[in-house]
Design a protein around this nucleic acid. Structure first.
Length: 551
DNA sequence: GGATTGAGTCT
DNA sequence: GGAGACTCAATCC
């Protein structure tokens, strides 16, 4: 598919492509092809092409194949840009775009390129994409990856385009107001730190901070970094109570992070015409099958701390008749693990709708469930997370601040209780070693080329990946299927509800209040049944005027 | 000016 | 020395 590099994907409004081609002419030329259901479309990064064409009022029909996505499905850790794919699969290096518009890639220069050069470049682009399609479609079939492609990734692309275009409303005034509060705090903390340190220095500089903490104030050093000793939050936590500077430092870090990364940055990304923030979802970066979000990343909006919650509050419904609906999978990764390993104890806990961390605590600490203390539950929660990540006694000791022997004891008891979980872990590693890759319930793969490495650190890392990827990846498969089904259902019902965000196990919708009664149960049902497991899958859904309220 | 490092945010 | 991402400021080259 030929697209004009002058048009930026962030441009949601049509403009003439040049003095020779009006929007009307553009539509006239391309609509008969792209809007024709009988013509299948083969693209490299079709989400982008779909977006450009929609900007011009052309709805792409029959989006059939995407070479970039195919490459990602075949081997997610490779490069997926067209030039790389061409070199890899066609042994051919395409005309570099920089030949046309210079090393600095100034898009305006495209107008200086003569027509013949431009045509050759564009025609080659299309030719390569089609040749790649021939190679990659055969490869998908051969590797048994057609389901992931045709049932998940290809149909998901237009859904993501629609979400990006919808965007999410952010309350700029609320952020500005919060900013004033943060500025005051930053100033206060900064002065206090300087006063305690006895000198003014750049607190953001780890280099300067190390001198203050470890040389001047003689605080005990803990973890090493490449360039010195760590001043990160975990290290500072360990120093709490040893010196009054530590608490203020942690507070300073928190508020500067909130200001720099969110409160200052988000308003700049509000689109002047839509008044909303339009993130971009990357469908081909995460090795496990998850999505990522950038410019801005809306998958790491704070929620943990009181100050952080203020930022979530600034994500609001599109207008005063709308609400946000947040629907998230409950304990999805543990449910997937239970389903894969068919552990009776774990499956029973989910069938009985138990609080899984409490039940784990009861079994691991051999205590009646009603006598489980908050601290026991917290520890069990860490154990459950640790299991999903392939943790060892060393890691658990660090997380819980207990002795390694005690950590080992907890792990032993856990595996003794959940016998199939131990079998699942061993089996995941063995299968990955034998096949050379880990895979999800749906068949998505991730190659583990170093799982037989002689280097213990390298090998053990991939052993942990072999445990985690099938779980995290299956959760990704599940929510992606749900997104496709929900999108289609909303379209079928001609609903005004828009899906606007995905945060790994959660979907956010911006919807008219009067649609809630009809649509909310539909969303829950489609999420819960997207990819049936051997344990119940449950979704919690809430509504509110802002994201914090809804979640 | 681009790349790296260390830090912190989320699931 | 638990999995997966993205962003920011300082520093390095």
């Amino acid at each position: 598919m030929i697209t004009n590099p002058f048009i930026e994907s962030r441009d949601l409004f049509a403009k003439d492509l040049s003095d020779r081609l009006s929007v009307e002419d553009f539509k006239k030329i391309f609509t008969p092809v792209f809007a024709n259901e009988a013509i299948g479309k083969v693209c490299q990064n079709g989400k982008y092409d779909i977006s450009i064409l929609r900007t011009y009022g052309i709805e792409v029909k029959n989006f059939y194949f995407d070479t970039m996505l195919a490459s990602y499905i075949l081997d997610p850790d490779q490069k997926h840009n067209m030039d790389s794919l061409s070199e890899k699969y066609l042994k051919y290096s395409p005309i570099p775009l920089t030949d046309l518009i210079g090393a600095k890639k100034n898009p305006e220069l495209i107008f200086n390129v003569d027509e013949k050069t431009l045509c050759n470049y564009a025609a080659e682009d299309s030719d390569i994409t089609f040749r790649l399609y021939e190679k990659l479609s055969a490869e998908l079939k051969k590797e048994n990856l057609e389901k992931v492609a045709y049932e998940i990734e290809f149909p998901l692309a237009p859904v993501l385009e629609d979400m990006e275009r919808a965007g999410v409303k952010v309350d700029e005034k609320a952020l500005n107001k919060f900013n004033m509060r943060l500025e005051k705090l930053i100033d206060e903390y900064k002065k206090k730190i300087w006063e305690i340190a006895g000198e003014e220095f750049n607190i953001n500089s780890t280099k300067q901070l190390q001198v203050i903490l470890f040389d001047k104030l003689k605080l005990p050093k803990s973890k090493k970094t490449k360039t010195g000793f760590s001043t990160n939050a975990a290290s500072l936590e360990a120093l709490k109570g040893k010196h009054e500077i530590v608490d203020t430092l942690l507070d300073f870090r928190q508020v500067t992070k909130l200001r720099n990364t969110y409160v200052d940055a988000l308003p700049k990304l509000i689109h002047p015409r839509t008044g909303r923030i339009h993130t971009t979802f990357n469908q081909t970066v995460a090795s496990t099958g998850r999505l990522s979000s950038f410019n801005p990343n809306l998958q790491n909006i704070p929620i943990r701390t009181e100050l952080g919650k203020e930022i979530r509050k600034a994500f609001i419904a599109g207008n005063d008749r709308n609400v946000l609906l947040s629907a998230d999978y409950s304990q999805i990764e543990l449910r997937i693990m239970a389903s894969i390993c068919e552990d009776e104890t774990l499956m029973k806990a989910f069938h009985n709708k138990e609080d899984i961390h409490r039940s784990t605590a009861a079994l691991v600490f051999m205590t009646p469930p009603e006598e489980v203390t908050p601290d026991m539950r917290r520890k069990a929660k860490e154990v459950n997370f640790g299991i999903l990540y392939g943790i060892g006694a060393f890691g658990l000791r660090n997380r819980l601040g207990i002795s390694q022997a005690h950590a080992q004891e907890i792990i032993d008891t856990y595996f003794n209780t959940f016998k199939n979980v131990k079998a699942f872990i061993d089996n995941s590693i063995q299968t990955a070693k034998a096949k050379g890759y880990a895979e999800t319930l749906f068949g998505r793969r991730r190659y583990l080329r170093n799982i037989n490495s002689d280097n213990r650190t390298v090998r053990q890392f991939e052993e942990r990946v072999a445990i985690n990827m099938p779980i995290q990846g299956t959760a990704a498969d599940m929510i992606k299927i749900a997104m496709i089904n929900i999108f289609n259902e909303l379209e079928k019902r001609k609903a005004k509800t828009k899906m606007v965000l995905q945060v790994h196990d959660e979907l956010i919708f911006d919807m008219p209040e009067e649609e809630v009664d009809e649509i909310k149960p539909v969303i829950i049902e489609l999420m819960e049944n997207a990819l049936p497991l051997k344990v119940p899958v449950t979704v919690d859904a809430g509504i509110g005027k802002n994201w914090l309220e809804a979640h």
